[in-house]
Simulated assay, not measured.
Amino acid sequence: MDTPILSVRDVHKTYGSGQSRFEALKGVSFDVPEGQSVAIVGKSGSGKSTLMHLLALLDAPSGGSIALEGTDTRTLRGSRLNRTRNKTFGFVFQQFFLTPRASVLDNVILPLKIAGVGRAERKRRGMAALEQLELADKARNRAVDLSGGQKQRAVIARALVNNPRIIFADEPTGNLDSVTGAIVEDILFGLNREKGITLFVVTHDEELAARCDRRVYIRDGLLVEDSVAVAA
């Protein structure tokens, strides 16, 4: 059997101590095969965003373990952790997190700059990603001058520029109108199908969640339902 790309075992996450102690996750376990699209679903405060941050190695569990293709992520430290995160993951957030007055291209190639990729190769790969998202003509524009949909496509280009194996999308259509949001959804699921990129979508939108292969429901820090879509 193939090793899951992510394996989560009895993961807990606690914040604070004493009377202010709060247990955000209370023992979550599941495996994710490579190439699957997974919706992490739950109400605000359920623990779904905490879970995503742990899966993306942006934070560490208080207990339990997360394995990335068989490697216990607790063994990743410092520059090794940063390299793994930069090389393996792409991120698409609701708030965009673009540098407003920098060019679209400069925003897109930031992960390559962090990875130490040379200037010419950064530009080549950045333009290729923008071309894929039909934004090449906006490369020199300032990010602040883009529409909401264009900003989200620029964010997806940035997520793709390092050829990630996993994309984490946190409420990726939350700031978009329904038509633009549907276009962004189509792009993400197209990447999942056509490139085999594992896709995690954190959402409270049931329609968006229904497009995923699998839905993991989090409530009060617990995994309360794990359902796989039935092929039509």
Rank of each mutant, 00 (worst) to 15 (best):
Gly47Ser: 05
Ile114Leu: 11
Leu54Trp: 05
Leu188Met: 09
Phe22Gly: 04
Lys151Thr: 03
Ser65Asp: 12
Gly174Asn: 14
Pro172Phe: 04
Gly70Ala: 04
Asn82Leu: 15
Phe30Val: 09
Met127Asn: 00
Gly221Glu: 03
Ser44Asp: 08
Ile197Asn: 01
Gly116Val: 04
Ala115Gly: 10
Gly27Trp: 05
Asp177Arg: 07
Gly181Ala: 09
Asp31Ala: 12
Ala24Met: 01
Gly18Trp: 08
Ser46Gln: 04
Gln19Ala: 10
Val104Ser: 01
Ile156Leu: 02
Ala154Leu: 01
Ser178Val: 14
Thr3Phe: 12
Pro33Gly: 13
Val161Ser: 00
Asp2Met: 13
Ala24Ile: 03
Phe89His: 00
Lys26Asp: 11
Ala232Glu: 15
Ser29Trp: 00
Leu191Glu: 02
Phe96Lys: 00
Leu208Ser: 04
Ala39Pro: 09
Met127Gly: 02
Gly116Thr: 07
Val224Cys: 06
Asn163Lys: 15
Ala115Thr: 05
Asn162Ile: 00
Ala139Ile: 08
Ile218Gly: 05
Val230Met: 14
Gly116Glu: 10
Asp137Tyr: 13
Gly181Tyr: 06
Glu121His: 08
Gln36Ala: 14
Lys26Ile: 08
Gln19Met: 15
Val201Asp: 07
Asn86Val: 07
Ser227Thr: 13
Gly90His: 04
Leu57Val: 10
Asp137Ala: 13
Pro100Trp: 15
Leu6Met: 09
Gly148Ala: 07
Ser37Glu: 08
His12Tyr: 07
Val28Thr: 08
Lys43Asn: 13
Asn107Thr: 03
Gly149Cys: 06
Pro61Tyr: 03
Leu54Gln: 02
Met1Thr: 14
Met1Ile: 13
Leu76Lys: 10
Ala129Asn: 04
Arg165Met: 01
Arg80Thr: 14
Thr73Ile: 01
Arg21Ala: 10
Ile156Asp: 01
Tyr217Ser: 10
Thr84Ser: 09
Ile183Cys: 09
Gly18His: 07
Leu130Ile: 06
Val117Leu: 08
Pro4Lys: 10
Thr71Val: 12
Ser178Glu: 12
Arg85Ile: 15
Gln152Ile: 03
Leu188Phe: 09
His204Ser: 10
Pro164Ser: 06
Leu57Tyr: 11
Val179Trp: 15
Leu54Ala: 01
Asp177Gly: 08
Ser46Val: 04
Asp145Val: 11
Thr88Asp: 08
Gly63Lys: 04
Phe22Met: 12
Ala60Val: 13
Ala56Gln: 00
Leu105Tyr: 01
Arg9Ser: 14
Ser62Tyr: 02
Gln94Glu: 07
Val38Arg: 05
Arg119Glu: 14
Gly47Leu: 02
Gly174Trp: 07
Gly90Glu: 00
Val11Met: 05
Phe93Ser: 00
Arg219Ser: 13
Ala231Ile: 12
Val224Trp: 03
Thr50Asn: 00
Val201Phe: 10
Glu185Pro: 12
Asn163Gly: 14
Phe200Glu: 00
Arg83Leu: 13
Leu222Val: 08
Lys48Arg: 01
Gly126Tyr: 02
Ser7Gln: 08
Ala120Asn: 06
Glu207Gln: 15
Ile109Val: 13
Ala120Leu: 10
Glu134Phe: 08
Gly190Glu: 09
Leu25Lys: 04
Gln132Ile: 00
Val104Cys: 03
Val155Gly: 02
Val8Cys: 11
Gly118Met: 09
Gly35Trp: 09
Asp205Arg: 06
Val28Pro: 03
Met127Tyr: 06
Ile166Met: 02
Gly47Tyr: 03
Met127Val: 00
Arg140Val: 15
Pro172Gln: 11
Glu69Leu: 15
Asn163Trp: 14
Ser49Asn: 02
